[in-house]
């Protein structure tokens, strides 16, 4: 295959694998996200979904395979370099900057595209002030969009669970990504909250012209919102296709042991 992939693929993952000791946590995982995609990644607990995210974002280094973000090869790069390349994520086990304020959490995301030299910071140059104001404004807008603007002064660790998840999305969006990976963003929410969040996710995709890959346990939800779904089981990709194909796939039904899919 030529390397001129992805002229318009935002994320292109090819045959990425990793082993932990004897366990092959993810085996030859492939995926392609065009602009505007809203795809799902599902599978039973321990299937390797989070591990796949960790491979894409550089938390783990793949044993093999390649990852391209906007045509740029990123596998093997450090996580912060991959973030700069345009890949942002949230975490299944929420990782906020707990002692910092809600606003500061989003500012942390927004400053990635900002400017900060140490001398300018200490002397408060015009360039510094302008950059900080831009970061500030950007962060507040995202808090607004996620509906948590009224809580900006609170410490992140004191937010209710659902708001923490929304804050994680706001922080990820603040880095101005091209691709957003959401690891169980609706976990722990009630059905109404879940529904609202999915609407919001769709909106975010449209507004920021992102490609989104979503891990979610609630099958109905995934089926209703995602255009294309990849199913993992024991690290293997057992199916990939649109919701109706996935629903009819015998391997998927087996993996979920007769659960209504």
């Amino acid at each position: 295959m030529s390397d001129a992939i992805g002229d318009n693929l935002l994320l292109d993952v090819r045959d990425v694998s990793i082993r932990f000791g004897g366990l092959c946590a993810v085996n030859k995982f492939s995926l392609a996200l065009p602009p505007g995609a809203l795809y799902g990644l599902i599978g039973p607990n321990g299937a390797g979904k989070t591990t796949a995210f960790n491979l894409l974002t550089g938390v783990y280094r793949p044993d093999g395979g390649s990852v391209y973000v906007q045509g740029k090869r990123v596998d093997g790069l450090k996580p912060h370099q991959i973030a700069h390349a345009g890949l942002a994520r949230t975490f299944q086990n929420i990782r906020l900057f707990g002692e910092l304020s809600v606003l500061d959490n989003v500012r942390m995301g927004a400053q990635m595209r900002g400017w900060h030299g140490l001398p300018g910071t200490l002397l408060r140059t015009g360039r510094y002030v302008k950059a900080e104001r831009g970061i500030d404004r950007h962060a507040r807008q995202l808090l607004d969009i996620m509906g948590i603007a009224s809580r900006e002064a609170e410490q992140a660790k004191n937010l209710p669970y659902g708001d923490q998840r929304r804050l994680e999305i706001a922080r990820a969006l603040a880095t101005e990504p091209k691709v957003l990976l959401l690891d169980e963003p609706a976990a722990g929410m009630n059905p109404q909250e879940k529904h609202d969040l999915m609407q919001l996710i769709r909106l975010i995709r449209d507004r920021f012209r992102l490609a989104i890959l979503l891990i979610e346990h609630d099958m109905k939800l995934v089926m209703s919102i995602c255009e294309r779904i990849t199913v993992l089981d024991h690290g293997e990709t057992i199916a990939a296709g649109n919701p109706s194909e996935i629903q009819a796939n015998p391997k998927v039904i087996e993996a979920y042991l007769g659960e209504p899919v």
């Binding site: 996580p79 912060h80 942390m108 880095t175």
Partner: peptide, 12 residues
């Protein structure tokens, strides 16, 4: 606060 999250928002 969290090294992994810091890296995820681009901090070297």
């Amino acid at each position: 606060e969290d090294e992994i999250a810091a890296q995820a928002v681009g901090v070297n």
